[in-house]
Design a protein around this nucleic acid. Structure first.
Lengths: 210, 210
DNA sequence: CCCGCGGTCAACCCTTCGGTTGATGCCGCA
DNA sequence: TGCGGCATCAACCGAAGGGTTGACCGCGGG
């Protein structure tokens, strides 16, 4: 298994790009073909077929999301594998990335060695998950109760933005009774007993955005 | 101004440490004496007087906070300058760091060149702030109305974590009347009328941590 | 085919929260 | 020296949110 792995790095932090270069260039079987600061450029370069694995961040200072870029890259058959490398390990992020077709999900606090083996694993087409991430997915499968329904997520999202029950009901063309009903179910699933703690719990678990 | 600058790097991400090394070692007048993965070690090494500037992250995977470490390092007279290097630019973080005695506050998306000049500025004893950070501070000075007091921020932080008024009052050893009083003032300052919208507004403006 | 679940709504009761008024002590600054 | 902001607390009231029960519909899987 001495196949050379051609890498494309995508991260908006110059320091992180330099760090990844420094860490991965020491591996004799790795070749870094480019490092780019935006998701758009990652998509563009990935389409050229010069890389086997794309190491990509999820957050790119505001613009296009890493998960979006991942979807575009993996949509093209014969394209490179995508390995997500991020600081966050919330459910929403992980699921979005996996649904987008990512081959692996790593956390930035991973030791260099783990990183290198994950890259080789991904290059071989097998999935590479950080232990923390794997655990989280197991949890989710074991207790599907913690998963909110689409409508519930929609309601909670608006609540998190500060809307009252009345405001939510108007926005979603519902009666206040329905909104309250949804909230009661949400509280039960999250194991809380108020709107603010529901928002806190949901953001902590990455079920809703910000 | 060819004085050599001795640097100590503190960050829990191996990749970031490697990146900082790679970026800063190219500067001929810099010398990196050590890089450590914890705030505790940063404090210990800083006390040995072998560094002029400490480049430190604020978040260290759960344990001791960078602001705490900063306070301990700067408490010792004749110690090194502390330069905060983090991903976040919320008011609370910035103020905590500056109050702890940090000489500068940089964001991780800064280009390498900016980083190097900031280090030299700090070594010379002058404060070095990222443009975004400086802007935020100016804003705060210009419109002190939007700035929450220390106590108010403390209360709102707990509210954001989902605590009820009763729970907040117990946690802070206050009466519920006081908590409500603080909240009323917070609502006025943020221009909102409920706890959830206060949390939403405050997180949007970076007044509290998430 | 029917059960379960998601989504919708109503009526009810009780707790908490929101808003006001008013008061005290402390500290810094003019 | 006094004003104003911060922090603390009390009492009160109305409104919003929280909790329960019960009901209806549509849809998909056993």
């Amino acid at each position: 298994m001495t196949a050379r792995v051609r890498l494309l790095l995508a991260d908006d932090h110059p320091v992180v790009r330099a760090g990844l270069r420094a860490v991965l260039e020491t591996e004799p079987d790795f070749e870094i073909v480019a490092d780019v600061p935006t998701a758009e450029e990652a998509v563009r370069l990935a389409a050229r077929g010069e890389a086997d694995v794309v190491l990509m961040d999820l957050q790119f200072g505001g613009r296009m999301l890493g998960s979006q870029a991942t979807a575009e890259i993996t949509a093209r058959p014969g394209g490179p594998r995508v390995l997500i490398l991020t600081t966050y390990d919330t459910d929403a992020d992980i699921l979005a990335a996996i649904e987008a077709g990512a081959t692996g999900y790593l956390l930035k606090d991973a030791p260099p060695q783990e990183l290198a083996t994950a890259v080789r694993t991904a290059a071989a087409g097998r999935s590479a998950l950080a232990p923390t991430v794997a655990l989280r997915l197991m949890d989710r499968l074991r207790t599907p109760a913690s998963a909110l329904s689409r409508r519930e997520t929609e309601v909670l999202q608006l609540v998190a933005e500060g809307l009252s029950n009345a405001a939510v009901s108007k926005r979603l063309f519902l009666s206040q009774a329905t909104v309250k009903s949804h909230l009661v179910h949400i509280y039960a699933k999250l194991g809380v007993d108020s709107r603010t703690s529901a928002v806190a719990a949901a953001t902590a678990r990455g079920l809703i955005r910000r």
